[in-house]
Simulated scan of single mutants.
Amino acid sequence: MLISSIYESIYDTGKRLLHYLQEIEEGRRSEGNDSEGLHGIEEELNKALEALHAQTYQVAVIAAMKAGKSTFESEL
């Protein structure tokens, strides 16, 4: 479904960004720069990814009989 593919895309992009930040920090440390400049961004990105992962939705579908409610439910 469209919503789940969008969710996966956002989550995967966030994970890649987190990985790149970690690589940058690792490179800076190997060069002797042990500043925490990117650490705050990494923490915020982790919080956002955790919130995205934990987020759930509840949808109520109200319609007349034989209006396709079961078909809609199977699409989810």
Rank of each mutant, 00 (worst) to 15 (best):
L2K: 11
L2S: 09
I3Q: 06
I3H: 06
S4M: 04
I6M: 02
I6K: 14
I6W: 05
S9F: 05
I10L: 10
I10D: 02
I10Q: 07
Y11C: 01
G14F: 00
G14L: 01
K15G: 01
K15Q: 12
L17Q: 15
L18Y: 04
Y20V: 15
Y20I: 15
Y20P: 00
Y20L: 14
L21I: 12
L21K: 06
L21G: 05
L21V: 07
Q22R: 15
E23R: 13
I24Q: 06
E25N: 14
E25S: 10
E26L: 13
E26W: 08
E26V: 05
G27W: 01
G27E: 15
R28K: 15
R28L: 12
R28T: 06
R28H: 09
R29M: 07
R29Y: 09
R29H: 11
S30K: 15
E31I: 00
E31P: 00
G32T: 07
D34W: 10
D34Q: 14
E36L: 10
E36M: 09
E36P: 00
G37D: 12
G37A: 07
H39M: 08
H39Y: 11
G40S: 07
G40A: 09
G40W: 03
G40M: 08
I41P: 00
I41V: 11
I41R: 10
E42G: 07
E43F: 02
E43A: 07
E43M: 12
